[in-house]
Design a protein around this nucleic acid. Structure first.
Length: 443
DNA sequence: TACTATT
């Protein structure tokens, strides 16, 4: 039914409304199809926008690849179709050998002759330095099962080499990338846990911790009204803006004395609750006589004295401070207070996208941000039904962009207003509506 | 660096 050397192809950039039956005609013109499967989500059955395609004949696959790959764009797609051997075809991995300790003057042909007895050689390249001199290694191919030493390994010492021949499986792309990252990480010290907390992004980490404290306050205080959630989120915003460098006041989480600019610098009372190791205070129990809203102020940001004789309700104070702050930074703050829904529990991620106008594309995320941090960051603006940071499949490293979906457009707009241009370190977040699938349709 | 896929 199918040739033994048939190639399974991965097909990407397929509109989600096209099923196998729609795709078949497109691919059939290159040969008889053995199998065509649109990829679906295991749980939701959702069309993933890609497929696997196997032709009966290897040649058909090659023809389809060269005719279609990056050559044509299916209706409604922004990028051209992808047609290439599936990862499962194992190209490039498990079949490439590294050979070290070659003689400086050995050529590709010498090496080919050496390895010919072990099987057909696909490719053989000697790695050379800038001066053209051999660096003593080459990439070749030849059969030896994993876990087994190649018969040539250590078998002989080439003229001029300092030790015997080295033959092993070459690093995969992933291994190479990881190795490079480790080298870089070593220079930057970013794999040191201390610097994750207190290094380049330390201030931002603190802001996140404060946000979490604020969210805890909003979620746990059963007596809190929606305004508390707003105030909590706004407090966090202030903290984050401190971090951004837009605000001169130092952010000292444990000091409890930072104040946003433009806000009363009257003496701030010390925080009664014990300061946790993370720099924010645990919530005081409701029974200790504290007002329910007090936890909001335990983030180390306390814009107004709680005991001020002129204003009784701390929440009112918080809101006043928030408006005051919003007045100073209208572009960043104006729309939030209107658009704030009540905090809701995090919905488990099953649905990927919200309705049109509810899905955000976020760029310039810090490298260390994952789905959880992205969720945290956007939770203050509404029900986050999905938050996904895109990661490189080979390295598991963030690509520094992601998607956040809300259940309503108002939240999405509020998030854009507040977070677009939000400065983190040297970068500013870009937060905008995800491009609609149909690029022609204005929204 | 730029818009979610590799059973």
């Amino acid at each position: 039914m199918k040739d033994h050397d048939a190639i399974k192809l991965f097909v990407g950039q397929i509109p989600r409304n096209l099923e196998e039956s729609d795709l078949k005609p497109l691919f059939e013109e290159f040969g008889r199809i053995y199998e065509l499967t649109v990829l679906k989500d295991r749980f939701t059955g959702m069309h993933k926008g890609c497929a696997f395609l196997t032709y009966c004949a290897r040649d058909s696959a090659l023809k389809a690849q060269s005719a279609l790959h990056e050559q044509k764009t299916l209706p409604g797609m922004n990028r051209p179709i992808q047609v290439k051997p599936a990862d499962s075809e194992g190209r490039g991995e498990d079949r490439k050998l590294f050979v070290g300790m070659l003689g400086k003057q050995q050529s590709e042909d010498d090496v080919r002759r050496l390895f010919e007895p072990f099987g057909q050689i696909e490719e053989c390249t000697i790695l050379r330095g800038p001066d053209g001199a051999s660096k003593g290694g080459f990439w070749g191919a030849g059969g030896a099962p994993h876990g087994c030493r190649h018969p040539l390994h250590g078998s002989q010492t080439m003229p001029g080499a300092s030790s015997s021949l080295v033959v092993k499986f070459a690093d995969t792309d992933k291994e190479r990338t990881l190795r490079r990252m480790h080298q870089m990480a070593g220079q930057l010290g970013i794999f040191n846990p201390m610097t994750i907390q207190f290094g380049a992004y330390g201030a931002y980490t603190q802001a996140i911790m404060q946000q979490q404290a604020a969210l805890m306050a909003a979620a746990q205080g059963t007596c809190l009204n929606p305004m508390a959630a707003i105030a909590a989120a706004q407090m966090q915003q202030m903290a984050a803006f401190n971090v951004s460098g837009l605000v001169a006041a130092p952010l000292t989480p444990s000091s409890g004395t930072s104040t946003p600019p433009g806000i009363s610098t009257a003496p701030v009372p010390s925080i009664a609750a014990p300061i946790g190791v993370n720099g924010f205070s645990p919530l005081p129990p409701q029974s200790n006589g504290q007002p329910a809203s007090e936890p909001i102020y335990t983030n180390g940001i306390h814009p107004y004295p709680a005991q001020s004789p002129t204003v009784a309700d701390p929440l009112q104070q918080a809101y006043a401070g928030m408006q005051h702050y919003a007045a100073a930074y209208p572009a960043a703050y104006a729309p939030i207070s209107q658009a704030f829904p009540q905090q809701a529990p995090i919905i488990p991620q099953q649905q990927r996208e919200g309705p049109e106008g509810c899905n955000l594309f976020i760029y310039h995320l810090p490298q260390e941000f994952g789905d959880a941090e992205l969720t945290q960051m956007f939770l203050p603006f509404g029900n986050v039904i999905s938050a996904k940071v895109f990661v490189d499949r080979a390295t598991n490293q963030s690509k520094c962009f992601g998607f956040v979906s809300f259940d309503n457009p108002t939240s999405a707009q509020a998030a854009i207003q507040a977070m677009n241009g939000f400065q983190i370190g040297m970068k500013r977040l870009k937060v905008q509506l995800k491009r609609p699938k149909d690029a022609n349709r204005p929204y």
